[in-house]
Design a protein around this nucleic acid. Structure first.
Lengths: 296, 296
DNA sequence: CTGGTCGATAGGGACTGGCTATTGAGCCTC
DNA sequence: GAGGCTCAATAGCCAGTCCCTATCGACCAG
């Protein structure tokens, strides 16, 4: 059985005329005749009673007609649904961000994203790097935005922007008064870090690996905001990604943010997605928008 | 788009494995692969994300799946519905009978019909010959049982049984005492007839055409039963078809039924149906049953 | 009887859907 | 890291299907 046959049957049932039904179906009359007959043979039942000058449905034909009609209608529905989805820059795109990027990057780009990709519904998720990669591979998320590099297997990546690290110190610390700070100036300080799992923790440790700093044993912050509070309370110093010091997140309330002098430590923020993804267009568009936003 | 493609897609969505889906669909894996790809191309949308070691539905695929599933299910429904209808001796058969046959024939045959054709639902209608033929041609009725001959165009007919006419006279009439009656004996009598449209009226007039009878001007019965009442009331005599004198319809209550001596006037009762009907098997079965019932 | 309508039949060509064999990518094991 | 395994994609070929035009045959109307 074939969708086409059902269409022919519905057309015939509605026109009650082989010629008209054929015309409506854009085929020749013999074609439609043959297909109808084939459908009847396949079903083992006569659907149409061919009276001279009149086409009538048999009882069975009457019973089958509504089902055939529904099938035809639903198949059209599939086509139109697919046609709507056809625009690669529409539909949902599930984007995951790590916690040290998401809250600070999103305010800077959502406006532009909404303007440039108005039909794309971004579903946003926040996960640490490892869970994010897992969900990415599992297909729960289509695009990850995180600090590169990460192990890529089956994944593709591109960098979006470089983000400098800044130094956050208590305002009453001697470091707060310095015109310039270098990594080496941190020697002997107590370094406050995020809890395990945050890549920023590893990045900060990496930046400070050459020098001798004490990591606070007792406190490990669960978020950048608590980390910021801890610095303001004078418990130590920390590195903050630059975006986390912009706008409302800058100096003040007992905390002073200092830029490093060259060479400025930094991390690369990038996008990661499955090689096999079906959303390459949408992903590229989002990446381009983020990239151009951050380049300015 | 093709029903088959949708089946393949549903199988793939359920197995999440090209090979298994192909097996379940009784085709080779390359065939299924190719068809899925063709479906995607046709719809202009990717339905499946081919990850290594994993088959995942795209968002569009997820949306389309339930519709595809329903279509597949409904197409199966058509097949099974047709398979059930496949038995030509099942389903409805619309049978029309003329009023001078229906009420008297049906009690004699329904039992046997029900036994021999248990799955056939007979829908019974009563119409005079002309309307019956019209409804037959219009397809409102599949089979007519009436007195032959009738003009056949586009119709086929067969005779079922011959039915003698009997004479109905008031019990106090001289005719009631006669051992034998012949048509000629009716000369000078008042003949009561059914109203226009009943073929029995014409048949009676035909039988009596050779002799001189008076047709009652004032009364024309609307049914055999009122006709019977009129005879019993002494208003005249009439011809009754034999079946209408059997069992509870025989002599009594002021009415006497006499058989004619040879040559016995009679009419032929037959079946009529559209040449183009789709129910030849059922019609033949019904006719055979009636025929054999009445032959006994 | 003739012309017109309508569906069925005949015959031939293009396309589709199916197959087997093979490739190629990714994963696992030794 | 070489080789084997799994799994989907590709290649190449064949057969059946679907469609076409041309024509027939039945029926109806004038």
């Amino acid at each position: 059985m074939n969708l086409r046959d059902l269409r022919y049957f519905v057309a015939l049932a509605e026109t009650r005329h082989f010629g008209k039904a054929a015309e409506r179906s854009y085929v020749s009359q013999p074609t439609l005749s043959a297909q109808i007959k084939k459908l009847e043979t396949y079903l083992g039942v006569q659907l149409i009673e061919r009276q001279p000058r009149k086409v009538a449905l048999t009882e069975t034909g009457v019973k089958i007609l509504p089902i055939a009609r529904r099938i035809v209608q639903e198949s059209d529905e599939i086509v139109s649904l697919a046609r709507n989805e056809h625009d690669p820059l529409s539909g949902k795109l599930k984007v995951g961000l790590i916690p040290t990027i998401g809250p600070y990057l999103l305010p800077l780009i959502t406006r532009k994203l909404r303007k440039q990709l108005p039909r794309l519904k971004l579903m946003l998720y926040e996960h640490q790097t490892q869970p994010l990669l897992e969900k990415l591979r599992a297909g729960d998320i289509d695009l990850g935005i995180l600090a590169l590099p990460v192990p890529l297997d089956g994944l593709e990546a591109r960098s979006l922007y470089d983000e400098n690290f800044t130094l956050a110190v208590p305002t009453n610390s001697p470091l707060a008064k310095r015109a310039h700070v270098k990594i080496d100036d941190l020697t002997g300080e107590t370094l406050l870090l995020l809890e395990d799992g945050h890549c920023l923790r590893d990045q900060a440790l990496d930046v400070c690996s050459r020098i001798d700093v004490k990591e606070s044993e007792d406190y490990r912050a669960t978020s950048l905001e608590t980390l910021r509070q801890m610095v303001a309370a004078g418990l130590g110093i920390t590195l903050l990604p630059e975006l986390a010091t912009r706008g409302p997140f800058g100096s003040g309330h007992g905390l002073t943010v200092k830029e490093f002098s060259r060479p400025v430590p930094s991390r690369t923020v990038g996008a990661v997605w499955r090689k096999s993804t079906a959303r390459t267009d949408a992903i590229k568009a989002v990446c381009d928008t983020v990239h151009s936003s951050m380049a300015a």
